[in-house]
């Protein structure tokens, strides 16, 4: 009847749970390798250098957009305006290139994304609007603004700079050039999450805002900086993505929005905050990309593919959360 015997009962499951909670990346790596194995089994020879390069190339913009979700989710928030911010950056940049030239166009393109982030941050931090509502709102407003903007630049046309196309689609020694942008960014984010005061505060706020306040943290400062940073990363993602797609449109990055949330969740970041990290998200983005290829290979109708995609995401996430929650 003592507490100790009660603890002992589900020990093996609990151990697995603790192991997963302490080493959250291992089951994700296993899942990724499993999916690649299935793919190779279904279509022997498909997994080659070229395929790997392509998978990474398409996973990178997703992983970058998912960085916005990961960081905001660590505080218990979300950034639903990230895809719109990315689209705006890409569109504004591409339409400004014929007018002001490439370097200035890139700067002008990033401005609206950062501005959106600041507005999100102000709403979340100062007005205490729930991030879901706040970012949904700014996303809608920004989409409207983009449509108005389009009317003014429709005559000048759009150009995707060669440099971005090289970064987005090019390869060097078989590896996509976008790694040049992505690897430093990923290293920086992972380092920031673990080894900087700002990164720690994201976890702290997501884990317990009251405790953070008692410890002297002023949450609004963190939220403002966080959402502005999220806007900036979204903007950069947009620039890279238009280099990959090479055709700016008003809904360029939007299809990546929900997958970016899914990548963060599959990667083990809790939507309630306080748990997770960017390493898992990168694996999540890779898993989603490989899963996409797999479902395409199955030659199912589009509808069935989506159903299966949704089911797999739900199953994986449920199992993963169940495992890690055993340790609570």
């Amino acid at each position: 009847m003592t507490a100790e015997t009660q603890v002992r009962e589900p020990l093996t499951l609990k151990r697995v749970g603790r192991f997963v909670a302490d080493n959250p990346l291992i089951p994700l790596v296993v899942l990724l390798l499993l999916l690649v194995g299935v793919l190779e089994f279904m279509r022997p020879g498909i997994v080659n250098e070229r395929w790997i390069g392509n998978t990474i190339k398409f996973a990178i913009p997703l992983a970058m957009l998912a960085a916005c979700q990961t960081m905001t989710m660590l505080t218990g928030g979300i950034d639903l305006s990230a895809a719109v911010a990315a689209t705006i950056s890409a569109f504004v940049m591409a339409t400004q290139v014929p007018i002001v030239g490439v370097p200035l166009a890139i700067c002008i393109g990033l401005l609206p994304a950062i501005l959106m982030g600041l507005v999100n941050g102000f709403g979340v931090a100062v007005c205490r609007v729930h991030p879901l509502i706040m970012t949904l709102g700014t996303g809608l407003i920004a989409t409207g603004c983009l449509q108005v903007y389009q009317r003014f630049v429709i005559a000048s046309g759009s150009v995707v700079p060669d440099g971005l196309a090289w970064l987005g689609t090019g390869r060097t020694w078989g590896l996509p050039n976008s790694l040049l942008l992505f690897v430093p960014m990923a290293v920086l984010i992972i380092w920031a999450q673990r080894r900087t005061g700002f990164g720690r505060l994201l976890y702290a706020l997501g884990s317990n805002e009251t405790a953070s306040r008692i410890s002297g943290v002023r949450p609004w400062q963190v939220f403002l900086a966080l959402y502005a940073l999220s806007g900036l990363i979204a903007g950069v993602t947009g620039l890279l993505y238009v280099g990959l797609i090479k055709a700016p449109s008003l809904s360029l990055v939007n299809p990546l929005l929900l997958p970016s949330v899914a990548a963060a969740v599959i990667g083990g970041t809790s939507i309630f905050g306080g748990r997770g990290g960017y390493g898992g998200t990168i694996l999540g983005a890779l898993i989603l990309t490989v899963l996409g290829t797999l479902l395409t290979l199955l030659q199912m109708p589009e509808g069935a593919r989506r159903i299966l995609f949704g089911l797999i995401i739900l199953t994986v996430t449920t199992i993963y959360i169940r495992l890690t929650e055993q340790s609570r």
């Binding site: 900087t196 005061g197 700002f198 720690r200 505060l201 976890y203 702290a204 884990s207 317990n208 009251t210 405790a211 953070s212 008692i214 410890s215 002297g216 943290v217 002023r218 400062q221 900086a225 809790s270 306080g274 748990r275």
Partner: peptide, 24 residues
């Protein structure tokens, strides 16, 4: 009210030292 339940002992103890912007 005082603890970051989902974080480590280390992070809980070090928290106040990172609170100010100059420590970000």
């Amino acid at each position: 009210d005082g603890l970051l339940m989902s974080r480590s002992v280390h992070e809980n103890i070090a928290l106040p030292q990172l609170a100010r912007i100059s420590k970000w």
